[in-house]
Design a protein around this nucleic acid. Structure first.
Length: 851
RNA sequence: GGGCGAAUGGCUCAGUUGGUUAGAGCGCCGGUCUCACAUACCGGAGAUCACAGGUUCGACUCCUGUUUCGCCCACCA
């Protein structure tokens, strides 16, 4: 075996075995319980980043853990076509080549996107494999697969027939760059410095004017009213009067509406029903005309008079200039407000009146909310439940049509002859009623309209597959908080609506990976870390272990490249411990527990405790706690003590093999490669997950305490040796197990690197000494000059002990405490006082001798 | 404007129903190439648990307020 663990070699070896034998393929088996997770399908826009590595590590740990536990684990892999996102990326690529999608036409453009998607799909799946993800690769899905598309159309039709899906002219968020509508969730609001323009609207029939304030003067071209609050005494008198919109000279009425905030701006609001969501509502209420003044690219259209053809910001400039020259601009104020941006291309969105498809969400939301309120859904961490409930309680219609080319085409056909609107799952080219020509709706669906079906669509729901019956519902969804609304909430609604079941019972929301400064990793900032680089440099196991180790439940781990040394060092430690154990068992390996002495019992006791803690952590989604248990048990107890003792005591320790074997079984979900390799080095013919795995139970409190006492003695000796350099040690032992100590004199000497050890009944004057759990260790200190700092330390310890004793004694005198505290706590307090007293006595004794 | 979260040694974080002499990793200081591992071993220093009140026999932990940071939601033209 090599001195340094060669993770590259090991990963290569096992990856090729996995590739060939497909050990993680899940087959229906009604004698076993399924444990299913569907992957949050990564977007084919790009390759995976560290956040994906984190997300998928968590899933793989859960999948492997439960597989090891005997569940029939199925992890369904796949990728998402990511409609608008991918289209934007490919458009950018074309732009670099000096091309536009319009040059190619819809068909050729789609081919370009498919090329991009296929390339990235491959890279993504390979990245997942490099990470050690044990998906069932034969089930890999893509949101645009034929059966997925069929599911989408089928579901569309169902909702359409139920009256949940409808088409209408409403204000939507419009991205002038992508030329498409966006859902409310696809708009990011960022605070921006802007101007608030105060514009005079002259009265029609008399002198004077009113003043309206706006941040978007260009929308005045579409104004069809001015509103005031009816409760505004002075202004409400003007209701019914007519003013003239400058520049286009449209006569509009002053109307009264509660919506207007008396205290904002001038109290007069210009109403543009076609370009503002609130104005739209007012427009509906007051039957106002809705005049669209911008085209789909954000240029002023024919309704804009002389401004026609100007880009929206250019038009704004011109309009302000013209108003100024007409003396109709009252003033301009600096103003900061949040502005909506397209979440994919960051262009400022325009509220825009257009015909779109919507889903009524209120009825779908009700059962999804109920499931949460009745705790059928469990959130980890729990606080996300509130966020989820709040969103569902205030849900709004979902705009699902997109004016894009990449995605699921809306399954609606229009008859050119009888004008009928037909929804059909299968492609049609004739009207079923009149036989006339039909054409399909040009729009595609929001990408999330396919993602929300993911948990059951991937399992063959549409075709009534047995897989769906056996593996659905899934157990848990593992995701970052960003897509709680986009995706998780909607999956729950879809699951309940179409399958009658929750798609999963647990929702595990993990944090977002940040760089060492705490900034979210992103491609545009260039602070991202490529998981493949880490895998190459540190190994997949190190990547996995480090990520999970550093992230408490739901917290945002801060990561730099250096962080991964943690995992690498741990892997190397495990490797070398194995090397040691194997080298001591060269004459044949027998892996079984042995209890030849206290040390064996002690480590088995700790092993049991570790397994219980560890498994409890994983089952409660406390994966970082699990990582810590692995780390501490193996390194701090097994390596630092048990193996050191073993080296001294004997060769051919079966028990060490036994503990190692058990340890790597537990380690496997976190560090699959090294555990698989060691398992085979330990002579197993099977893969690690195929072996029986039950929680180990052996507790021996007595041996545990005995060895812990010995450890504390050895630490005290090392301490003395370190400070004085003297290697002749005397021990005054006050406890009852002197035989145990005498039997282990050689061990103590070797572990603390001393030459002589002598047991005494008393300590002489003027010695340098240290207390330990059940006694005092000391040296004869003739030659020690600097006793001062040593005494200071003891004095400090004495004071601390006295303080503790005082504190606890006070408690015991307090009647309230005695009446109210649990009896266990009272007993514990007494025990602590005893312990402190014994220690204090020893400290005092040492100090007395020194004076 | 509303809601949520965070604040613990130089850094990153644990601390699950209130009772621990407040833990770990990294970093730092000192000592070791000890025949598994220098990606290691041994020892050490370093924390008034953001601040101010309160509840309690007892608060890092619960309540109120304040400050700083982060996130989410909301129609302020």
């Amino acid at each position: 075996m090599e001195k340094i663990y060669d993770f590259k070699e090991c990963e290569k070896k096992w990856n090729s075995i996995y590739e060939e034998k497909k050990p993680f393929k899940a087959n229906i088996d009604y004698t076993r319980k399924p444990y299913t997770i569907v992957i949050p399908p990564p977007n084919v826009t790009d390759v995976l980043h560290l956040g994906h590595a984190f997300n998928n590590t968590i899933q793989d740990i859960l999948i492997r853990y439960h597989r090891n536990k005997g569940f029939n684990s199925l992890w369904v892999p796949g990728t998402d076509h990511a409609g608008i996102a991918t289209q934007v990326v490919v458009e950018r690529k074309l732009k670099k080549e000096g091309k536009k999608k319009e040059d190619l036409g819809r068909d050729d453009f789609e081919k370009e996107v498919w090329k991009w998607a296929d390339e990235h799909k491959n890279i993504i799946l390979n990245q997942l494999k490099a990470l050690g993800a044990t998906c069932d690769w034969d089930r890999t899905k893509f949101t645009l697969d034929e059966d997925m598309s069929r599911t989408v159309s089928f579901v569309f039709k169902k909702l359409y027939e139920k009256g949940y899906i409808y088409k209408g002219n409403y204000i939507v968020n419009w991205c002038p760059r992508c030329h498409t509508a966006l859902s409310d969730e696809e708009v990011d609001y960022t605070p921006k410095k802007a101007k608030l323009y105060y514009i005079r609207y002259p009265f029609k029939n008399r002198d004077g004017y009113i003043v309206v304030a706006t941040t978007r003067p260009e929308t005045m071209l579409g104004d069809t009213a001015v509103a005031v609050n009816p409760s505004d005494e002075t202004k409400s008198k003007l209701i019914g009067e007519t003013v003239v919109v400058p520049l286009i000279n449209r006569e509009i009425k002053i109307i009264g509406d509660e919506f207007v905030d008396v205290n904002f701006g001038t109290g007069f609001v210009k109403v543009t029903p076609a370009h503002d969501p609130n104005d739209f509502i007012m427009g509906e209420k007051h039957s106002l005309e809705k005049i669209v003044v911008l085209d789909t690219k954000g240029f002023v259209n024919e309704n804009g008079g002389k401004y026609k053809g100007l880009e929206r910001y250019k038009a704004r400039e011109e309009i302000i200039k013209d108003l100024e020259s007409l003396n109709l601009l009252e003033k301009i104020e600096d103003y900061e407000h949040s502005v909506g941006e397209c979440y994919r291309c960051k262009t400022v969105v325009e509220p825009y009146l257009s015909e779109q498809w919507f889903v009524r969400m209120d009825e779908l939301a009700k059962p999804a909310l109920r499931a949460s309120l009745e705790k059928e859904l469990k959130f980890f961490p729990q606080r996300w439940q509130g966020v989820y409930n709040h969103w569902l309680s205030n849900i709004k219609p979902w705009c699902i049509s997109r004016q894009l080319w990449w995605g699921h085409r809306i399954p609606v056909y229009y008859c050119e002859k009888c004008k009928k609107e037909i929804v059909s799952v299968d492609k049609i080219d004739r009207c079923p009623d009149c036989g006339g020509n039909v054409h399909q709706d040009e729009n595609v669906l929001d990408t999330w309209f396919s993602s929300w079906l993911w948990p059951f669509a991937t399992l063959g729901w549409i075709d009534g597959k047995e897989d769906f019956k056996y593996f659905y519902p899934t157990k848990v969804i593992v995701s970052a908080s960003e897509i709680l609304f986009f995706w998780i909430a909607r999956m729950i609604m879809a699951g309940l609506e179409f399958t009658g079941k929750l798609p999963f019972e647990d929702i595990y929301i993990h944090g977002t990976i940040r760089d060492s400064r705490g900034i979210k990793m992103s491609k545009s900032l260039g602070n991202g870390i490529d998981p493949l680089i880490i895998i190459n440099k540190f190994g997949a196991d190190s990547l996995r272990f480090t990520l999970v180790f550093l992230s408490g439940q739901g917290t945002d781990p801060k990561i730099s490249e250096k962080s991964f040394e943690l995992g690498r060092n741990f892997a190397n430690k495990i490797w070398n411990a194995t090397r040691l154990i194997l080298s001591q068992n060269e004459n044949g390996m027998v892996i079984e527990k042995e209890m030849n002495d206290e040390f064996d019992r002690w480590i088995l006791h700790l092993l049991s405790k570790f397994e219980n803690d560890f498994q409890n952590s994983v089952e409660n989604y406390r994966l970082s706690d699990g990582a810590e248990s692995l780390y501490n048990f193996f390194w701090k107890e097994f390596c630092d003590w048990y193996l050191e003792i073993m080296k001294i005591k004997e060769k051919g320790n079966r028990n060490a093999l036994f503990v190692l074997k058990r340890f790597i079984r537990n380690l496997n979900p976190y560090m699959p490669y090294i555990s698989e390799e060691i398992n085979s080095l330990l002579g197993s013919k099977e893969m690690i997950h195929q072996e029986k795995y039950e929680c180990f139970e052996f507790f021996d409190e007595t041996s545990f305490k005995l060895v812990e006492m010995l450890k504390s003695m050895i630490v005290a000796i090392r301490n003395l040796v370190q400070e004085t350099g003297v290697k002749n040690i005397f021990i005054r032992y006050d406890g009852k197990e002197s035989n145990f100590l005498k039997e282990n004199v050689e061990l103590i000497k070797k572990l603390s690197k001393i030459e002589n050890i002598e047991f005494k009944n008393n300590i002489p004057k003027n010695v340098i000494a240290k207390p330990f759990e059940e006694g005092i260790v000391y040296i004869e200190s003739k030659d020690i000059l600097d006793i001062g700092s040593f005494t200071d330390k003891l004095e400090k310890e004495k004071e601390e002990l006295e303080k503790e004793i005082e504190k606890n004694e006070k408690l015991l005198k307090n009647e309230n405490f005695l009446n109210k505290a649990d009896s266990e706590v009272i007993e514990e307090t007494k025990r602590k006082i005893e312990e402190f007293r014994l220690k204090l006595e020893r400290v005092r004794e040492i100090l007395k001798g020194l004076k």
